[in-house]
Nucleic acid binder design. Structure first.
Length: 109
DNA sequence: ATGTTGACGCATG
DNA sequence: CCATGCGCCAACA
């Protein structure tokens, strides 16, 4: 099983209304956080997907950085503000600095 | 086989 | 608070 598949598997377990950080997921799988970011980036980049593996229904928006902020806003792939919008639709509240309260929303496994 | 690329995180100034 | 710097490592080309 590819590493990115193991990452997707964990991401799918994050409940609606909760989030996980790249570092947190990395810790669960004993991977560098960058690899987690790489795997999610892969979703947007290789959308049609190599090998017909199922990579739909992956709630990528529920993964944020360790400061409680959004890391996708400078990417060409993803529309500006999309991730925050998706999270807000799940009931997550952002403060005036575009950060969320990790104490409140962090997914504990 | 080899070089490059990040949706990171932490330390430091 | 902001800005760099760099270690990290799977996948890709």
């Amino acid at each position: 099983m590819k590493t990115y598949e193991r990452i997707y598997k964990i991401v799918k377990k994050i409940p609606k209304g909760k989030v996980a950080t790249y570092g947190q997921i990395g810790q669960m799988l004993n991977l560098n956080p960058r690899v987690v970011g790489w795997a999610l980036n892969r979703l947007a980049k290789y959308k049609p997907n190599t090998k017909g593996q199922k990579q739909d229904n992956i709630p990528w928006q529920r993964v944020i950085n360790s400061k409680g902020g959004i890391s996708t806003n400078k990417l060409m792939n993803i529309p500006l503000g999309l991730q925050q919008l998706l999270l807000e639709k799940e009931g997550i509240v952002f403060n005036e600095n575009k950060k969320i309260n990790l104490r409140k929303y962090l997914f504990k496994h």
